[in-house]
Simulated scan of single mutants.
Amino acid sequence: MYTKQERMMQMTFTKLPKAITAEELLSTPLPPVKWIIPGLLPAGLALFAGPSKAGKSWLTLWLCLQVAQGKPVWGREIESRTVLYLSLEDTLNRLQDRLFRLVGSEDTSERLILQTECPGIGQGLEEQITSFLYNHSDTGLVVIDTLQKVRSCDKSGSMYASDYKDVSALKSLADKYGICILLIHHLRKQAASDPFDQISGSNGLMGAADTTWVMQRKRTSKNADIILTGRDLDRRTLYLHEENCIWLLDEEETAEEQRLKAVPEYLWKVAEYVEQAGKWQGTATELLSAVGVDGVLPHMLTRKIVEHFDTVFTPKGIRYETHRTSQTRLLKFSRSGNDADDANDADIDITQLSGWDISKIASQASLASSAKPWRGKYGA
């Protein structure tokens, strides 16, 4: 269901057929992405997972209040919409207590509707939501807290197939009526290098969702991070702190900003030095001395050069090669097109290497150097 304003807006767009040529698609104006929270939560199916007792329900109830009242969320202006909050692990007494603490003496909106019971997926939930949308055509957000309470008990197939089937049923409903259905879920206790791999269940849950939020918080800590990704938004991280039961935004970083932030400051200095010099060769110790960097071990410099090469050096057109002698490892930097005899060098271009055997390469480099000396300012 859409608001009157959204229905009028959609009348200006052509209804697309199920199959369309690329030329027709490029020639057809389409409605923009509908945002419940601009840049963070679009219409469609969203998954919000976090540790048990981490404050997900408090944060979710506050979000519902903000959307229902049309109040800003983390610096973003939003449109007031009716919200259905299915708080399936709480009682009305508990919800009332939370509302008192969240709103204080402020007026609350009648556009937030709370419910503590509902049928499961495939057992009447979809029909109940459809009926609610029919009676509240301005609905923008439906929250199901938690997903586990409404999941089907289908054991006939794989866990992935079952998870994907359940979530897809709700996604179809969200897409049909142009709303956001937000599923609150848990993380597994096992740690993972990728936070999204901690989501309990199979990859089918995240695979069917349009947007995924993962909350990370240590027990009793006042701080938490929310990592977001989705089909309509770039990956980013929100850094929050809790104050009077409300999660406030301290900082927001995109994936690109996080990538740049991970680069040590001394590496930018090295790249700037090489860029100005045009070409340079020598040991890591000599390079650190030339740039004026203290407190960094030579082997750490060479590792960070490799780790952040594409971020720091490639945009400046800097090439990097390394050559192992019997006594030390020599580094060679050059700007693209500066060395006419680069193609004749027996050096190893580490930007082309993946999963290499250090001992084997060092041996090959030694043989190459004995056959053809590597000459330069610091050559052996």
Rank of each mutant, 00 (worst) to 15 (best):
A208K: 02
Q69K: 12
S200K: 06
Y164Q: 14
R98D: 01
R231S: 11
A169W: 00
G50V: 01
A22M: 06
L99H: 05
Q10C: 04
G104P: 11
N203M: 11
Q123L: 13
S359Q: 13
S221H: 05
S202D: 01
C153V: 09
S336C: 02
Q327E: 14
H308E: 08
E106T: 15
K269D: 14
A290E: 00
H186G: 03
T21P: 06
A362N: 08
G317M: 12
S158F: 13
R375D: 05
K4M: 12
H299I: 02
I37A: 02
W374H: 14
A191R: 09
G55Q: 02
I246S: 01
I226N: 06
Y134T: 11
C180Y: 02
E79P: 10
V214S: 03
D97P: 11
M1K: 06
G207C: 11
A371Q: 10
D210Y: 10
W280F: 08
M206F: 02
H136F: 07
A362T: 13
D349Q: 10
E257D: 04
I227W: 08
S156M: 04
G120V: 05
V312T: 06
M300C: 05
K279Y: 07
M300E: 15
A19E: 13
A174H: 03
G355L: 05
M8F: 05
F196R: 10
A19L: 10
T146Q: 01
K4F: 01
S172D: 11
D250A: 05
R319Q: 05
P38T: 00
R81W: 12
L133I: 13
T146W: 11
F100H: 13
S27F: 07
R259G: 08
R236S: 14
T116C: 09
Y177F: 15
K171G: 00
E256F: 04
T302S: 06
W35C: 09
T14R: 11
T146I: 11
I144N: 09
F48S: 11
A68T: 02
D107L: 14
C180S: 04
V214G: 04
D210R: 13
K15W: 09
K360V: 07
I78S: 04
K372V: 09
T322S: 12
M1H: 07
P51F: 10
A346C: 09
T139R: 08
V296K: 03
S172G: 08
R94V: 01
A22V: 06
Q148D: 10
V263K: 01
T285F: 07
I305G: 02
L45G: 08
D310F: 07
I37G: 01
N338S: 15
K18I: 09
D339C: 10
R235W: 01
L41F: 01
R236L: 12
S369Q: 15
G278F: 03
K165C: 07
P315M: 06
I350D: 05
E265Y: 00
L331M: 02
L367Q: 15
L84M: 03
G157E: 14
V103M: 12
Q364Y: 13
S168C: 04
D341I: 10
N203A: 10
S336I: 15
R98Q: 08
P42S: 05
T283R: 07
T146H: 03
E253N: 14
Y160A: 09
T254C: 00
S370M: 07
